[in-house]
Amino acid sequence: MSAASSGLSPRLRKFIGTVLMVLLVLVWALGAMALAQGRVTVLPGYLQFVAYVILGIGWILPAGVLVRWMQKHDRRQETL
């Protein structure tokens, strides 16, 4: 099995992950703002609190999956 067919290099994986992370944060922030200004304002206070907590920290789960993928060990054989 050649090195090219074993997967992405760690450097490329981290670059792609960084770009995806920036896009995730931008899209999440814009979506959260749109929901917070529209639908959340008509909810009772306790549900507003829950919605703001979810909208504020909900991006952490997909970001964690992305970071785990970025940190995945290189499948190529290491040379000494």
Rank of each mutant, 00 (worst) to 15 (best):
R76T: 05
P62H: 00
L61E: 07
Q71F: 13
F49T: 14
R68I: 05
I57G: 15
G64T: 13
R68Y: 01
I60H: 08
W59Y: 13
M70G: 11
G45T: 15
G45M: 14
I54S: 08
G56E: 01
H73V: 04
Q71M: 14
Q48A: 06
R75M: 03
D74V: 13
Q71P: 04
K72N: 03
V53P: 00
A51S: 09
L61F: 12
W59E: 05
W59C: 07
P62R: 00
A63F: 14
A51L: 03
I54W: 10
G58E: 15
L47G: 05
L55F: 08
A63P: 10
G45E: 12
G45P: 10
Q48W: 07
Q48L: 10
G58P: 13
I60V: 15
V50G: 07
W59N: 04
F49I: 14
V53R: 03
L47R: 09
I57H: 15
V53Y: 03
R76N: 05
A63R: 11
I60W: 08
Y46I: 14
L55H: 08
L47S: 06
P62C: 00
W59H: 09
L47I: 12
P62L: 01
R76D: 02
G64M: 12
I60E: 06
A51W: 01
A51F: 02
G56Y: 02
G45H: 12
H73N: 00
Q71S: 12
P62W: 00
G45F: 11
K72L: 07
W69S: 02
D74Q: 08
D74C: 08
L66Q: 05
P62D: 00
R68Q: 00
R68T: 03
V50Y: 13
G56D: 00
I60D: 08
D74F: 06
R75T: 05
F49M: 11
R68K: 01
H73R: 02
H73M: 00
Y46F: 11
I60M: 12
Q48V: 09
V67P: 01
Q71A: 14
F49C: 07
L61D: 04
R68G: 00
D74S: 07
R76P: 02
I57V: 15
H73K: 01
L66F: 07
L66W: 05
L55A: 09
I57Y: 14
I54C: 11
L55P: 06
K72A: 05
V67M: 07
L66Y: 07
I54L: 12
Y46W: 11
L55I: 12
I60Q: 10
V65R: 03
F49D: 09
H73P: 00
V53Q: 02
M70N: 07
L66H: 06
V67G: 01
G58T: 15
A63D: 13
Y52Q: 13
M70V: 12
K72P: 00
W59I: 14
F49A: 10
M70I: 12
A63Q: 13
W69T: 05
A63H: 10
L47P: 06
Y46L: 14
I57L: 15
V65F: 04
F49S: 08
L61I: 14
G64V: 14
